[in-house]
Design a binder for these strands. Structure first.
Lengths: 201, 201
DNA sequence: CGATGTTTTGAGAGGATTCAACCACAGTGG
DNA sequence: CCACTGTGGTTGAATCCTCTCAAAACATCG
């Protein structure tokens, strides 16, 4: 990349807030970011995560609207910041870039639509099983088989769209049925086919 | 438009099905289309509607993936069909078009994200109130104040993500509290501020 | 008029939330 | 060193929102 304005964010720090104007978009060099919306009662709903290679903030830049999400590093994160004009110029003058960015946006849109259907139709148990599978596929496992992303129970609840207590009860149900192994925030999937079956996927 | 391959669809007919390959995208000349996904148990989840001026099917064309939604005319509809190559050429070679299409996609993405949060956090009652407001804003009212889109109870349920019976009970609750007036599938909003308050918007 | 699909209403079951109390643990400061 | 505080995790019990099932009333249409 030409413009190497890199920024470092500690775990827990906010990159930008819902409602803010953004002066560019960001490319993730390392770390993990959670992207969430804050609902009416202040509860957060995690929309997606961004990891190395992903970009964040481009939606607001393209729409020239305030950010509709808050982004927060959940691991120490390095970002590469790219100003608005460069993005718009690329879309306008570089056809291949435009197509690639369109593909990315369409992929996100497809995933969002699928998640609307899931959250509207599936039970909390099914959704949790599905999310565990997704996290496994997106972030992979370490050498011991433990998921490479570690989340609090509350964060899991904020993905699934349920209460923290429900996540706790379901996780221990999954553990007792040997679908997973739990060690604090470290989760290891023992029976992926079983979970997939539970999730109806 | 250059390529006037118009097609007419009667109310109730399917334009394309989830899983199908699409050979182009469509621009709506008149009518209303419902766009939905079919969940695991066969229940449909309505993602959005398309009316005059909207386009459908472009996501699959851009992603070169099978359609992730089914589209069905809920009013007699006229479409203008545009082949894949033309869309891709436009994105690649016409910067302004690329930006506009990106804006459209980003708008849909923003709406989808907002709906994920709603459906995950709000009650059925809040969501129904919100949907009624949205339908009013998107399709408007006729001279008598009746919503310009008429849906079955089941379709309303498939937007809100609930059971048909719940919609029926809530609609009659709204009516008894003078938020709305109902006449079969004709709905007239009497107290928009009240509904907005109910919906937390 | 029968036939089919939609709308209603009732009752019961069940999933999920809420509230509350309790534990574990880390960091702080006296 | 230890009480103090805050955060995250756990568990139980009561409540409530929604769904499901069943049956009946209506509506529409050939």
């Amino acid at each position: 990349m030409l413009n190497k304005i890199t920024e470092t964010y500690k775990r827990g720090s906010i990159i930008y807030r819902q409602g803010n104007r953004i002066k560019g978009f960001c490319c993730v060099r390392s770390g993990i970011i959670k992207i969430y919306q804050t609902g009416f009662d202040g509860k957060e709903q995690i929309i997606r995560f961004a990891k190395v290679g992903d970009i964040i903030g481009y939606r607001s830049v393209i729409s020239s609207e305030p950010a509709c999400t808050t982004t927060e590093a959940i691991k120490d994160t390095v970002l590469c910041h790219i100003p608005t004009e460069i993005l718009l110029n690329l879309v306008k003058n570089n056809g291949d870039f435009a197509v690639e960015l369109m593909k990315l946006t369409c992929k996100e849109l497809g995933e969002a639509n699928a998640y609307i259907t899931d959250i509207a139709q599936k039970t909390v148990k099914e959704r949790l099983a599905e999310i565990l599978i997704h996290l496994d596929e997106e972030f992979g496992e370490d050498t011991l088989g433990v998921l490479n992303i570690s989340l609090t129970r509350e964060e899991l609840a904020n993905i699934v769209g349920t209460a923290t207590e429900s996540i706790i009860r379901l996780l221990s149900e999954f553990r007792s049925k040997n679908y997973i192994e739990i060690n604090g925030r470290k989760i290891k999937i023992l029976d992926k086919p079983g979970l997939k079956h539970l999730a109806n996927i």
